[in-house]
């Protein structure tokens, strides 16, 4: 039984979305509209709130303020059927290294309630060009193979909103090329694709829009010039947030843990 297509996924709208930990703000008043058939780049220095934004988009983290609407519903109204339409590849692999590639895929296919999990796993193995190593444990895989597998794992259920956190890290040129092609396929299929990345040159040709996140604030990048140039320009226009003369207090002896 395929998950019911209840959520309308032509648009995801963020209005005034904030996320903070005590006095440490990870995301501040973010307003953004994501549309189907777009690849959106999420750029910015480390700790700028990219992972937080992806976490909120994935429904796993709740915003402290504002709301995210998936079509006409919020994450809480959407529940499980909404989650069935979201694919999330974080910079961790979300795989079990002790299991084989096939077992990993079949496990998640079952968990997602897909029809014919074995069939779906086989298709995904072909897409990941891992048919030959299907029954080897993931532990023995190279970084590129793991990443390809993790990618197909995240796309197993044909999500309409796909979130990537640093997908190019540690990939060789060939794997990067394959990933870029896969992103373009997703766009062509009408998915919303959000990629948080530092690899500007790789994503430059495929991005429809680029957004800068700095100190938790969003800023749309300009449209002309190379991505690198636009990124620099945007960085220069948004200075890092001034620290005022107040010591940021956090609840308890341990401070905020943002950016995870």
């Amino acid at each position: 039984m395929p998950p019911p297509q209840t959520a309308d996924f032509t648009q995801v709208t963020l209005s005034n979305v904030s996320r903070h930990y005590g006095r440490r703000r990870a995301l501040s008043q973010a307003n953004l509209v994501l549309s189907a058939g777009e690849i959106i780049g999420l750029l910015g220095p480390n700790g700028a709130g990219k992972s937080t934004l992806l976490g909120v988009l994935s429904t796993l983290a709740e915003p402290s303020g504002g709301e995210v609407r998936y079509g006409d519903r919020t994450a809480r109204q959407g529940g499980a059927p909404l989650r069935a339409q979201i694919g999330f590849l974080s910079h961790e692999l979300q795989l079990y290294p002790e299991l084989t590639a096939r077992e990993n895929l079949e496990f998640f296919a079952g968990l997602y309630g897909l029809d014919h999990p074995a069939e779906r796993a086989r298709e995904a193995l072909v897409l990941a060009s891992l048919s030959g190593r299907a029954d080897d444990v993931v532990e023995g895989f190279s970084r590129g193979m793991r990443q390809r597998l993790a990618l197909e794992r995240a796309l197993l259920h044909g999500p309409r909103l796909v979130l990537f956190d640093e997908p190019f890290t540690g990939l060789d040129e060939a794997s990067c090329g394959a990933l870029v092609t896969r992103l373009e396929q997703l766009r062509a299929a009408g998915s919303i694709v959000v990629v948080a990345t530092h690899d500007l040159d790789i994503v430059d040709p495929i991005l429809d829009r680029a957004i800068l996140l700095r100190s938790g604030r969003l800023r749309e990048l300009g449209q002309t010039g190379s991505l690198r140039a636009r990124y620099r320009a945007a960085l220069a226009e948004t200075p890092p947030r001034r620290r005022r003369g107040i010591a940021p207090a956090a609840p308890g002896p341990q401070g905020g843990e943002a950016g995870t």
């Binding site: 930990y21 956090a250 609840p251 308890g252 843990e257 943002a258």
Partner: peptide, 8 residues
């Protein structure tokens, strides 16, 4: 509450 960090 004191030592659990954010989300506690």
């Amino acid at each position: 509450r004191a030592y659990g960090g954010p989300g506690s």
